[in-house]
């Protein structure tokens, strides 16, 4: 077709137009927080390999308010990511028991339950193994 058309362009800040897009971009950005945490964790592991002194120094620096604040922020991001993700899960996972479809809310709750129990297990591991 030869008649001229108007082609709208999406600017780089397209996602600021709508609250739902902002939420989506925030969800995507939480992966940056995960990456930051992973890097810190890798440094932590490597400090172990570099000997007791380095490890203790690193552990000490992690107690600084800046690091604690950073970790709190990362935790917040992860919780946000998990909640938004679990809420979406029923759309991707349709489970049928015989003839009946399991309601979405049950699928979501199963995810939350899994999250809760795995967290509990990790807590138990941490307190029991590191506590002694």
């Amino acid at each position: 077709m030869d008649s001229k058309k108007y082609k709208p362009q999406m600017g780089i800040f397209w996602w600021t137009d709508r609250w739902s897009s902002i939420k989506f971009i925030l969800r995507e950005l939480t992966s940056v927080a995960v990456a930051v945490y992973s890097i810190i964790f890798l440094f932590y592991v490597s400090s172990i390999l570099q000997g007791k002194k380095t490890f203790e120094e690193f552990s000490e620096s992690l107690k600084s308010p800046a690091f604690i604040a950073l970790h709190c922020f990362i935790l917040l991001c992860l919780v946000f990511h998990s909640i938004t993700w679990f809420n979406l899960a029923p759309q991707a996972m349709v489970i049928k028991l015989g003839e009946k479809k399991v309601p979405g809310i049950v699928v979501a709750l199963m995810n939350y339950a899994g999250w809760f129990f795995i967290s509990l297990a990790i807590l138990w591991l941490v307190t029991n193994l590191l506590g002694t």
Binding site: L88, P90, Q91, A92, M93, V94
Partner: peptide, 12 residues
């Protein structure tokens, strides 16, 4: 229709 759901199920 839930197209988003359809796509995620497709991915699975």
């Amino acid at each position: 229709v839930d197209p988003a759901g359809a796509i995620q199920r497709y991915k699975v």
